[in-house]
């Protein structure tokens, strides 16, 4: 099975460095397998407040509050969670809150679960319709620089940005376990 363990660890480490460089202080998340390492690093870092959420829309509000309080944050979620955030994005959009979202994709590359396909296929369209700038990374070597660029446009230009991390990067889910 094609889970690329080594690469997965590597890109997460690089992305974490980028988040640290962007002075990210709050990391809100609903877990996804693709975010496992990033979440662990966030929890282990004393300068970062990890916020585990019950549902993704909470994260948009938390990061809005973080920015009001002078801190930058990031939201980690799976593409299925994008469907949960749409109305709350209106606040970030209207107030021009910087918003950095790292979205691990499902429902595309080699998807096994048909129930993931509708939201996965709609993710880009829906984010675009809500006014979010979309960056995509399908090559593990490009993820960190993509997140770096996204963080810049989010925090320097005050925009909502989603980095979609292709399912190809995370690898097929190992369904035999």
């Amino acid at each position: 099975m094609a889970t690329k363990k080594k690469k997965k660890t590597d890109w997460s480490k690089e992305v974490f460095k980028v988040l640290k460089k962007a002075d990210i202080r709050q990391i809100a998340y609903v877990p996804d397998a693709g975010h496992t390492s990033l979440i662990k690093m966030a929890v282990a870092d004393n300068a970062i407040k990890p916020v585990s959420l019950t549902s993704e829309q909470e994260g948009i509000a938390v990061l809005s509050g973080a920015w009001l309080g002078g801190e930058a944050g990031a939201l980690l979620m799976q593409s299925s969670g994008v469907g949960n955030v749409i109305n709350m994005l209106g606040m970030a959009n209207e107030c021009r809150f910087p918003l950095l979202m790292l979205v691990t994709m499902r429902g595309e590359w080699g998807e096994f679960n048909p129930w993931q396909v509708p939201m996965g296929q709609a993710t880009e369209t829906v984010l675009d319709a809500a006014g979010v700038i979309i960056h995509r990374a399908d090559d593990p070597a490009e993820i960190a620089e993509t997140v770096e660029a996204a963080a810049k446009i989010a925090f320097d230009s005050g925009r909502m940005v989603a980095v979609l991390i292709g399912q190809r990067v995370v690898g097929f889910k190992d369904w035999t376990k």
């Binding site: 202080r25 709050q26 809100a28 407040k49 916020v51 829309q57 909470e58 994260g59 948009i60 509000a61 938390v62 990061l63 809005s64 509050g65 973080a66 920015w67 009001l68 309080g69 002078g70 801190e71 944050g73 709350m88 606040m91």
Partner: peptide
């Protein structure tokens, strides 16, 4: 649905 969570992010930052 976001007021309490906005307050949470602010409280963590301040």
């Amino acid at each position: 649905g976001g007021a309490v969570l906005t307050g949470l992010g602010l409280a963590l930052a301040q």
